[in-house]
Simulated assay, not measured.
Amino acid sequence: MSEPKRFLAYCDKLFTPSESFIPRGYSAFSELKPVYIGHELRGEVPEGAEVIELGPLHGRGGEAAFKQLGTISSQLEARLKEVNPVAVHASFGKSGAYALPIASKLKLPLAVTYYGGDATKTSNTKDSFIRVYNRRRAKLWREARLILPCSQFIYDELAANGAPTIKMKVHHNTADPDRFEPGEKKDLLVFAGRWTEKKGIDTLIAALARLGEELQGWTVRLIGDGELKEGLVETLKAAGVEAELPGWVPADEMPKHWAEARIAAVPSKRAKSGDAEGLPLVCIEAMLSGCALAATRHAGIPECVKDGETGFLVDEGDEAALADRLARMLTDRERTAEMGEAGREFALSDFNLQKQSRKLESYLLDLARQARTL
Rank of each mutant, 00 (worst) to 15 (best):
A337D: 15
E334L: 13
A321L: 03
W258M: 03
T16R: 12
D12A: 13
E316P: 02
E40L: 13
A261N: 05
K126C: 12
G308V: 10
G308F: 08
G48A: 02
K169M: 12
F66S: 01
S268I: 04
K355F: 06
A292Y: 07
G48T: 05
S128N: 11
Q354R: 09
K237Y: 09
E244M: 13
D318T: 04
P101H: 08
P101N: 06
L211D: 01
G62W: 09
F21T: 07
G340W: 09
P4I: 04
A90E: 04
P182K: 01
G162Y: 01
E338V: 15
Y133Q: 04
R297Y: 05
Y155H: 11
Y98D: 14
E244I: 14
G55H: 10
A119Y: 00
D315T: 03
C304W: 08
L293G: 00
G96C: 03
A28Q: 11
A271S: 12
L288V: 05
L69C: 13
I147A: 02
P85A: 07
V86W: 00
C283E: 10
S349V: 09
D315W: 03
E213Y: 10
G93L: 04
L281P: 05
G340K: 07
L158Q: 00
P149G: 01
L54C: 09
K126I: 13
L57R: 07
G62E: 05
A371Y: 01
K105C: 12
D318R: 07
R221E: 15
L367P: 02
L106C: 10
K169I: 13
P250C: 03
G193C: 03
T296I: 00
K355L: 08
V112G: 03
K355Y: 06
F346I: 12
P4T: 06
A347C: 07
E197C: 11
H172F: 14
T113K: 12
S128Y: 04
K139P: 08
T235R: 15
V132Q: 06
V35Y: 10
C150V: 15
M168Q: 01
G93C: 04
D12K: 12
T235L: 15
G278R: 01
E77Y: 08
G116L: 01
R328D: 12
G343V: 07
V249Y: 03
I301W: 01
P85H: 11
E277C: 02
I154N: 00
E253A: 08
L108Q: 02
I284H: 02
R333I: 08
L353G: 02
L313M: 05
G70R: 11
F15V: 12
P109G: 06
L148K: 06
V305P: 00
P109A: 05
R221K: 15
G217R: 03
Y133I: 03
S357R: 03
C304I: 14
